[in-house]
Design a protein around this nucleic acid. Structure first.
Lengths: 193, 193
DNA sequence: AAAAAGCATTGATGCAGATCAATGCTTTTC
DNA sequence: GAAAAGCATTGATCTGCATCAATGCTTTTT
């Protein structure tokens, strides 16, 4: 039920069995069917979500009604609209399931209580966000300063697991490209190697 | 000496006068002259840096020798190569002073000791990185899904203070544009309004 | 004070990626 | 099992930004 989450936690901050039991009290398991929403634009993001199983995407909807994907989350990854969660403001992101999912949710009250009562949780969250920040910064640099071909290769190497499970046009959206361009990038690169 | 830093800290996590005194023990003031390096690519990033006065930029140098600016920091802002600081790996970023600066440095040992002894510091750092993450995410979305004109306006509104102190070609680099394009964006927009 | 370097602007040209459109394959739906 | 929807690919055209080049202004250097 909590295996993936606890493994992720232990990798950053080792826990004793008693601590694991204590921590579990604050966690809410949830199942989500493919295409169901975890969060909709305009609602307040009430949980931080860790993926035990399945896959989700976070996205904005633009004027034309197109989805602009900002993030994917697979097993062991965390997803939420952090701005909405921390400031308790309406979310700008939508999050929904790409596959049937098993999730672990941490509510805002649980989060606050854990921070007070269980310092290791604060350490875990700090490390989680730090890692996310570093990854995002790399993404900014790649986006602004690499060619599309280089970005594709970089992204492919970093997130191979995503490529095998997510339709290509969503990868294109995530990279800020049209599906046609991504298709051409792929054929260009496969020709080369 | 520590006014700006302590104000920033108090805004996120209020401190008693005693706590302020305690905290100061761990802070190292440093002055930096215009054009001097705070961090050079290849060195390990030994400090988190808060700007009391002045301005700095962080950047990569590409194959052609051009600077690709990834961040600016003005009074009250924080700057570092977080990946290098936390993993103790060689930095990929250079950081140098755009103006004469007064800085507050927190070394890695001071950081670790503060985390252990002073929980409010952990809270402060967590909030700092969370805010940075949210801002960076917005930047990614803007970069991938807005037109250049819209990005310029968004960036201008968000970071007006930068525009007044940083040469235009550095803003262009930060936005991933050529100086010529940014100049044209500006004349286009000033014509409109 | 003169020379040099740094910077913003404007024009001309070329190319990368968006858009529009058509086709065929695969998966889902009923 | 037929119809519909979703998806990847390929071609043709258009557009926005980079690049190259020249000019004049401002700041720094000596």
């Amino acid at each position: 039920m909590f295996e993936v989450f606890l493994r992720s936690f232990n990798e950053k901050v080792p826990l004793t069995p008693e601590e694991e039991t204590f921590l579990k009290q604050y966690l809410t398991p949830k199942k989500l069917r493919k295409k169901q929403y975890l969060l909709q634009e305009g609602d307040v993001c009430k949980h931080i979500c860790l993926v035990e199983k399945g896959a989700l995407k976070a996205y904005l909807v633009d004027d034309k009604g197109d989805e602009q994907i900002t993030a994917f989350a697979l097993e062991g990854w965390t997803i939420a609209d952090l701005s909405s969660f921390f400031k308790q403001t309406p979310a700008t992101l939508n999050i929904d399931a790409l596959e049937d999912c098993e999730l672990i949710l941490i509510s805002r009250p649980a989060h606050d209580e854990l921070l007070e009562r269980f310092p290791k949780y604060g350490n875990y969250i700090r490390m989680l966000i730090t890692d996310a920040y570093v990854a995002l910064q790399q993404r900014v640099v790649n986006t602004l300063h690499l060619s599309v071909d280089e970005r594709y290769i970089a992204f492919q190497q970093m997130c191979e697991s995503i490529f095998q499970r997510v339709p290509q046009h969503m990868i294109a959206s995530f990279m800020g490209l049209s599906p046609e361009t991504l298709s051409r990038v792929r054929s260009r690169l496969s020709g080369k190697k």
